[in-house]
Amino acid sequence: MSGRPYYVDWDISHMFKVPQNVLSLHQVKGANIGLIGFSKGGDLCLSMASFLKGITATVLVNSCVANSMTALHYKEMTIPSLGSDLSKCTVTESGFLESLHIWNNPLEKPNHQSLIPLEKAQGPFLFIVGKDDHNWKSEFYAHIASDRLQAHGKDRPQIICYPGAGHCIDPPYFPARIASVHPVLGLPVFYGGEPRAHGRAQVDAWQQIQTFFHKHLDAKISVKPSKL
């Protein structure tokens, strides 16, 4: 077996009843559902919000607005993967891979079909962006989303950018993942981020995410600020 990663095509048709199934859980209070996705999980959440009914609010953490890595299927429709050029992958002095520049520009005509039609979504979006992300051009993608939504008469999404923050903006007080072995590639990858700025971004982003969800899912609940 080669060392190249293997991806299976995503099919979200079977997720059609996910909102209804989630609402039936006794832990769920109210009729609203929020999604949060990070990296590849972000464009999957964008697709779910775009095609499935009942999604009220969606948070994307350093995510792409185009379908990535493999084709995505929904009913009779297929969204192809955004193309990439692995020859543009760079290596740091420490031997870590950087994939920031490998992905094709989704705004260029040959790549338009990979863009996710997020204007079909029912609820608002929050984009969390690490400005030192070395995996995705996250800020660029967030502004593509903003322009697309406004072009279709939708509200501008909330975009929060964190200078010095890298790709892996985890919940607060988790160790900053500046670099590690990628779980899919099996290779050391540099994610970016300055430790202090990244740590502060994790704390603030967590508060912003909770505030966003409470605003759109349950306006009666307030969020206690961090004491960091």
Rank of each mutant, 00 (worst) to 15 (best):
G3S: 13
G3V: 10
G3K: 11
W10T: 12
D11L: 04
D11F: 09
K17A: 12
Q20I: 02
S24D: 10
Q27V: 14
K29R: 14
N32E: 11
G34A: 13
F38V: 12
S39W: 05
S39H: 02
S39G: 12
K40T: 08
M48H: 11
M48I: 14
L52G: 03
G54Q: 04
G54D: 04
I55P: 03
L60N: 09
N62F: 00
N62I: 06
N62P: 05
S63H: 01
V65Y: 07
V65E: 01
A66W: 09
M69D: 12
M69K: 14
T70M: 08
H73K: 15
H73T: 10
Y74H: 10
E76K: 13
T78K: 14
S81P: 07
L82V: 08
G83A: 13
S84A: 13
K88T: 10
K88P: 05
C89Q: 14
C89V: 13
T90D: 03
T90P: 02
T90M: 11
T92S: 12
L97R: 08
L97P: 02
E98M: 13
S99Y: 15
L100P: 02
I102V: 15
W103E: 04
N105R: 00
P106T: 09
P110F: 06
N111L: 02
N111T: 07
I116T: 07
I116S: 04
E119T: 00
E119V: 09
K120D: 01
A121Q: 08
P124H: 00
F125C: 03
F127N: 09
G130S: 07
G130A: 11
G130R: 00
K131I: 10
N135E: 09
E139K: 11
E139S: 11
F140N: 05
A142D: 08
I144C: 04
I144V: 13
I144R: 04
S146R: 15
A151F: 06
A151R: 09
G153L: 01
G153P: 04
K154L: 09
D155H: 10
P157M: 05
Q158V: 12
Q158W: 01
I160F: 01
C161H: 03
Y162L: 00
P163D: 11
P163M: 07
G164Q: 05
H167M: 04
C168W: 09
C168D: 12
P171M: 07
P172N: 00
P172D: 00
P175H: 09
A176Q: 05
I178L: 07
A179Q: 12
H182N: 15
H182C: 08
V184Q: 08
L185H: 08
G186P: 07
L187Y: 06
P188H: 06
P188K: 10
P188L: 11
V189L: 10
P195R: 09
A197M: 14
A197C: 13
A197E: 14
G199W: 05
A201Y: 00
Q202H: 09
V203H: 02
A205I: 02
W206K: 06
I209S: 04
Q210L: 15
F212N: 07
K215Q: 10
K215R: 15
H216N: 13
K220R: 11
S222R: 12
K224A: 11
K224M: 14
K224S: 14
S226W: 11
L228W: 13
